[in-house]
Design a protein around this nucleic acid. Structure first.
Lengths: 342, 342
DNA sequence: CTGAAAGCGCTTACAG
DNA sequence: CTGAAAGCGCTTACAG
């Protein structure tokens, strides 16, 4: 005769009652602590199976000395964009190996959402946080970090707070992209970039300027378009650039979606084989487009894996002053960036 | 004089002490319960700010009558694949509107991982679960659901358990895809599909057979390739199909990555404009390839949003017998599927 | 080897 | 309007 299944989940106490032992003994079995007779282990195990008991991790964390919930937070730009989701997946793989789950959320470049997410995540007692920040200052995190929770910045540098970071050299990567276009013979090179509010966008624009300056090219202010955050906005910007007085013969598109928008504009004009293009950020199928899209690629998987492992090393008790890790970028020539000026 | 910041996070008790009120009064303020004098509200609020106090949601959930943690679980195929991540994002948007966070994980078609994730998520007291199942039986979920936690299946039907589901009609969608190729004049149509272990893959193969049967075409067993789960495997399969005795003049590729692998094979042979192709599942940039890739598209955003809203309706107390929602698919002609036989 | 008591941070159910 | 006591499910710190 089995007892009727209760509408509530079985507790450790229920298991103890059924196995005729104390709660503490059940706790010992569940946590694989030594010093319980085989007979009691068997009784407890049987009771656990019979009741479908599953320990309440949150209750356990509440009382445990270290208070760990085996959960880390990931504050991402958008879980659905390929860069964020590759980061996310790499974090997950590192976390899973340690039995740790991931709470994630998208900020969409909205500082208010960033703060709301972080507040929510800390309220849920995360053990660590990986953040791709959208705000222009994260000083508010100092309070959270006083609790000893490790925080690692990824993709975007920390501002107003000292923390580990896993970044790329955006300026050098952008410079390399533009130098590649210069090497192909271009001197009129357009820049289309993301929101000015994003630090990495500023760095990439700086890299663009560095490359022009390095080649002794006078930058044409009319060739620089900032604050394009969507495909559509980028597409319109490229149309306008090409409609200008002295249109550029090459484009440096400083972000994923911007690159795709630019390609749509070039296609619409039948110019994809006559206007050169190098994009920042790789994206799926870039090699299958015609021409293939030359990009400066980041390695989001490596970034996510490193960020997560830094969290875990701190949780394991390692101590070091906040450090910035710079992951190399890589220029991948695929055709669009090797087009020579008309 | 501020007191030295403690190394631990401030608790409700700390706030009470500083504000010189009882813990219960702090609780009232934090939860916006009425009946607290303005003076005490002000004192408590000030103490909260000074200490950087943030309520511990897990402790609160532990004691609360409904035990809600404001967290739902998402068991996905792979957070990094476009289909899963679109699902994920849509769920997030619905959840955020209710202040609910998402715990997610990737199963990679591994039933063991599916069970481990679910066990982990329930151990963290999720309020609801959305699952794209990889296992061939989810009877084990019955125990979890006895606790009253709503579970919604998405993309893959529940097997061995009664639960809500948000699916598409895979068989009808596949049939439509193949009929489209038949309408273009093809009779030798290859099928390349995902793992046999996936129910939706079986349905799609069935739809392929339906279409051929409907047109009175004798299916050629040599034209059917199953169990291709990666781009590479699909690419090799298409090479083999085209090297066969009576190669197909058109392909129906029954999944995302399979479609991309097939395109790579066709490109490698310079056949992308002579062999017709319709894929199941849309993917980013499908319209920018040349030719554009004709697909039967699902709507993962709509699926994720509906799945999440079903969870919340149940949490709000609505009751109904488990129901299957079928989201329509849509054939999007872009070029590859309109190629006529040689 | 085993268990009774106390307490993690919070809310419930009362009493005043 | 306010607070003291008890308890959510678990682990700690002891005692036997």
């Amino acid at each position: 005769m089995e007892p009727a299944q209760p509408r509530r989940r079985a507790t450790l106490r229920d298991v103890a009652r059924l196995a005729a032992v104390s709660p503490k003994t059940v706790s010992r079995v569940v946590n694989h602590e030594p010093g319980v007779t085989a007979a009691k282990v068997a009784a407890v195990t049987a009771a656990i199976d019979q009741l479908g008991y599953r320990p309440n991790v949150t209750a356990s964390a509440l009382r445990r000395a270290n208070g760990r919930t085996a959960t880390i937070g990931a504050v991402l730009e958008d879980v659905a964009n390929p860069f964020s989701s590759a980061l996310h997946r790499a974090m997950e793989d590192v976390a899973r190996a340690r039995g740790v789950s991931i709470l994630s959320g998208s900020v969409d470049e909205d500082p208010a959402r960033e703060r709301a997410l972080i507040s929510t995540f800390f309220g849920r007692q995360i053990d660590g946080l990986v953040i791709a920040a959208a705000s222009d200052n994260q000083a508010y995190l100092t309070t959270e970090m006083l609790g000893g929770t490790p925080v690692v910045f990824v993709d975007r540098p920390p501002i107003g707070v000292r923390a580990d970071a896993v970044l790329i050299d955006n300026r050098a990567g952008a410079r390399q992209a533009v130098e590649h276009l210069i090497a192909a013979g271009h001197r009129a090179i357009g820049y289309v970039g993301d929101l000015r509010s994003i630090a990495t966008a500023q760095d990439r624009l700086q890299g663009y300027r560095d490359a022009l300056a390095g080649a002794g090219i006078r930058p044409d202010p009319g060739h620089v378009v900032e604050d394009r955050h969507t495909e559509d906005a980028a597409e319109r910007a490229v149309h306008r650039l090409l409609d200008g007085q002295a249109p550029p013969t090459a484009l440096f598109t400083a972000q994923n979606l911007v690159t795709i928008g630019a390609i749509r504009a070039l296609r619409a004009r039948g110019r994809q084989r006559s206007v050169a293009l190098v994009g920042f950020d790789d994206f799926p199928l870039a090699d299958l487009l015609e021409p293939g899209v030359t990009v400066v690629a980041q390695d989001p998987s490596a970034m996510g894996a490193l960020a997560a492992s830094l969290i875990f090393r701190r949780l394991d008790g390692e101590v070091w002053p906040p450090v910035v890790h710079t992951i190399p970028t890589r220029l991948i020539p695929r055709g669009s960036g090797e087009i020579r000026p008309g």
